[in-house]
Amino acid sequence: MRRGIDQPKNQHRRLQHRISYHGGGGGRIRAATSKGADYGGRVGYRGGFQKFCRREIDLTNASRPITDREGQDCHRQDIDYLPLTVAFDGLVVVVHPSNTWVKSLKVSELKKIWEPAAQHRIMRWNQIRPEWPAAEIHLFGAGTASGTYDYFTQAVVGQRHASRGDYTASEDDNVLVQGVSTDPLALGFFGFAYYEANQAALRLVPIDDEQPHNGAGPIVPTVETVKNNTYAPLSRPLLLYVSSVAARRPEVQAFIRFYLTQAPDLAREVGYIPLPATEYRRQQARFDEFVTQQR
């Protein structure tokens, strides 16, 4: 058992209350939250927000902001909510280590590969750049139920939930790592954390968003470039949503306080990028204010 992890469990026992939360997204953010509260199951973020707005759960993790429609569901139930930023994540685009031709990709090229119009049309590497080989391209990416998919399609295609369908789509990032790392013709995308854990078997593709004002040329995702936002548009904040109903309860308040003090360590441990210390204090202040409003 790691130090600091027993603490909320004891608290939770002493208070004789249960905090229920929703992990979402293939065990990614979950690892940072799953200490000390009941874990509500593993489905995509959409499922998480639905449960959240039906008052089934108190907290939900998300890697994208709540949508207007989901927000309306909450307001209809008379639930207000507060998103807390708890860490950063970057999406990485990777190829097989033996791939010699891809040195970098422009966001416009990623769009050309992944947009719905590419389906059954962009099938070979030389359709992206003529100098690349005429070999088949094998695509691997997040499944449609994951927040990673929502985020990637929004950032690359420009419309959430719009992509081609003829690729290996899985909510299990291990399947994607396995697929890209064993297929010389593969191109895939998934969360930064999974790249870090499998660096030797994958090669990162630097991304150029063709907007010189936030870093010119292709940019490699690193802790630095994710934090300073030059690795755009594929880095994102990770969020924890707290409902107004839950925020009134002392055990939830204690849990959030604990969460924000542990977040830097836990984020690093599971391969995410922590916020600066001042930012965690600011998130705590926002939460305290939210609690005051609920009285």
């Binding site: 719905p116 119009a117 389906q119 059954h120 449609t144 939930h161 719009a162 992509s163 081609r164 369908g165 003829d166 789509a169």
Partner: peptide, 11 residues
């Protein structure tokens, strides 16, 4: 010849 029921361009 295409099977993409979960995606934008459904077949």
């Amino acid at each position: 010849t295409q099977w993409t029921p979960l995606f934008a361009d459904k077949h």
